[in-house]
Nucleic acid binder design. Structure first.
Length: 597
DNA sequence: ACGACGCGCCAC
DNA sequence: AAACGTGGCGCGTCGT
């Protein structure tokens, strides 16, 4: 494969003026945390199929800035990282490139959303280039790692420490853009070939909007977070000491915990897939005489070790994964800019990482209290109610479920009445609800029986009654699986997304379509909100919810506008949004109030 | 020292 | 007939 890697600037402008679109772009930086102190862009590369210019971000700063004003189209692999890095370093604004950017990672995801572990190609440039461009393609990563290793640098250090003119580094940098452009040339017609051209445009647009959200970030209440962080650390240390008293030196070692509990005369019954004793939360809580909400059950004498391990683990997790991460990752203005991957899961669900803000504890508001609206603003949120059940009703066009939803009655009450009659008990409603979730998640009788503590026979009868009540859902689910059996082993969603199914898990088809369609509803809502000029109020997408902030005086009005934009009809099923003004902090949406503290 | 993996736990 | 879905990420352990 021809690869002409040029490190001098001679001829760059002429080349850029005459090469074909899109021009591949990549950056090499000091690290991954764009908003941490000390972050810098070191190299910026431009390339086409055969030629790469590897420019020094400092030496060639003006030339790079000028290049981005050329009004070309660009292609990047995993564009958000480089777009935000370029923006942060003042080399190119997000807005400047918006609408002119392709992302080969997004294109690859549309063609096969599976990771390597799931049997797909995965979405790393190296693997994709091997599959689509040249099976001997090497991006030079292995050689670069070797240089890092020989110098005694850890992975994360190498990127900042390697000499900017190290030949291995420059080769790696140059190959990246050449492979990206070559990959683009293969992926583009293939994406169009499966009829996903419109979907690609949509995803590229969405990705760039989420980049804006990420760049803005969210304000951390640093004083509060520091104080909570140390409180959690103290708590973890205290409970770790108690555990040690019972012979457990490392609370994270399931082996030690299990052995100590057995020595205390406790009985363990559940095992992990590899045969070890299971000592997770579900096992330890009852042993500590606690329910799921950590309240005393009063059923037995609490085991002090089980109690200490539970509390130490929680305090440890919360301080390391949350408060500690918030403090580590915030920028110099105390703002956090989490990574938002607009197209992540097999079902296209988005993910948020560094830190994982989509999964902060919701049973207690203390962690969410770390996030505070900007001066004069309040946090707001709007979520779709029962989005997955409603999407399932719409897709299946089930008559009974449509009737229930349109009548406005509580769906689980309706289901319980159909299953058990008008005098259904609380436990029966819970079971009815569980059966409904089972349809969305693909769960079976065994699982539901275990979860609800209902006998397997009763559960089977409930599922059967459910299928008879909601015949359309059963029919829809079977239809998906049958067509996947006959044709290609995949389901295609309403927006034309191809979701591959695993051979032995074809039953997951219903879940995939529902989860994916619900994701696309939220994604479309994000685009619509920006179109209506409400984008500046948004902070973060959370699967079926959008978190935002707005000036206090207008917050009610703005959140109402957001709700209205989100709400829509989906094949006769109304998708409704619950909108709420939280208050100064994220915790205000979870029962926190200043006065109460 | 580093990576892979098992396990666990946080969310929707 | 039956089959619980999607993530992020830290710790401990074990192999290289």
């Amino acid at each position: 494969m021809r690869a002409d890697i040029r490190t001098a600037t001679e001829g760059f402008t002429e080349w850029l003026g005459q090469t074909t679109n899109p021009v591949a772009v990549d950056t090499e930086t000091t690290g991954l945390d764009i908003y941490s102190p000390g972050f810098d862009v070191r190299l910026v590369q431009f390339g086409d199929r055969d030629v790469a210019y590897v420019l020094d971000a400092k030496r060639d700063r003006a030339l790079i800035q000028e290049a981005f004003t050329f009004g070309r189209s660009w292609v990047l692999h995993n564009a958000p990282f480089d777009l935000l890095a370029l923006d942060r370093a003042g080399l190119a604004d997000l807005e400047q490139l918006e609408g002119h950017v392709f992302d080969t990672r997004i294109m690859a995801h549309l063609l096969d959303p599976r990771t390597e572990a799931e049997g797909g190609t995965g979405h790393s440039l190296k693997r994709l280039a091997q599959v689509w461009v040249d099976d001997t393609a090497s991006d030079g990563q292995t050689e670069l790692n070797e240089v890092f290793r020989k110098n005694g640098w850890k992975q994360a250090e190498g990127w900042a420490k390697i000499d900017i003119d190290h030949p291995t580094y420059l080769h790696y940098a140059g190959m990246d853009v050449i492979l990206t452009r070559r990959l683009f040339d293969e992926l583009k017609p293939t994406v169009l070939g499966i009829g996903a051209g419109h979907l690609l445009q949509f995803e590229l647009h969405l990705m760039q909007l989420l980049c804006r959200m990420q760049r803005k970030g969210m304000k951390v209440d640093v004083d509060y977070t520091r104080s909570l962080h140390s409180r959690l650390q103290v708590e973890a240390t205290e409970y770790e000491a108690m555990a040690e008293h019972f012979g457990v030196e490392k609370i994270g070692s399931g082996k030690q915990v299990a052995e100590a509990l057995l020595a205390m005369g406790e009985e363990l019954t559940e095992q992990t897939p590899s045969g070890a004793w299971k000592v997770d939360r579900a096992v330890l809580l009852p042993m500590a005489d606690l329910d799921n909400g950590w309240n005393r059950l009063g059923l037995r004498e609490p085991n002090p070790l089980a109690d200490a391990v539970l509390r130490a683990k929680r305090a440890e997790k919360w301080s390391v994964a949350y408060t500690g991460a918030f403090l580590d990752l915030k920028d110099e203005n105390d703002r956090l800019h989490p990574w938002v991957n607009s197209l992540q899961a097999r079902t296209a669900r988005m993910s948020v990482s560094r830190p994982p803000l989509q999964q902060l504890p919701s049973s207690d508001y203390m962690i969410r209290r770390s996030f505070i609206a900007d001066e004069g603003q309040v946090m707001i949120a709007a979520d779709y109610s029962q989005i997955e059940m409603r999407v399932l009703a719409a897709l299946s066009q089930d008559e009974a479920m449509t009737e229930a939803i349109l009548s406005g009655v509580d769906l689980h009450d309706y289901t319980a009445e159909k299953l058990f009659g008008p005098d259904f008990t609380k436990a029966q409603r819970k079971l009815a609800k569980g059966v409904g979730f089972g349809k969305v998640y693909g769960g079976g009788a065994e699982t539901l029986s275990r979860q609800t503590g209902t006998g397997i026979g009763d559960v089977r009868r409930a599922i059967q009654a459910y299928d008879e009540t909601f015949r359309g859902i059963k029919r829809y689910s079977q239809g998906l699986q049958e067509s996947a059996q006959w044709g290609k082993r995949e389901v295609v969603t309403r927006v034309g997304r191809h979701l591959p199914l695993d051979r032995d898990r074809v039953y997951a088809a219903t879940n995939y379509v529902v989860q994916s369609t619900a994701r696309d509803v939220l994604a479309q809502a994000v685009v619509d909100l920006y179109d209506k000029g409400l984008g500046d109020y948004l902070l973060l997408p959370i699967h079926d919810e959008i978190l935002g902030q707005a000036p206090e005086a207008e917050a009610e009005e703005i959140v109402h506008e957001i709700k209205k934009v989100m709400e829509r009809d989906f094949d006769g099923i109304p998708l409704l949004s619950d909108a709420e003004v939280y208050g100064r902090t994220w915790a205000h949406g979870y029962g926190y109030s200043e006065e109460g503290q």
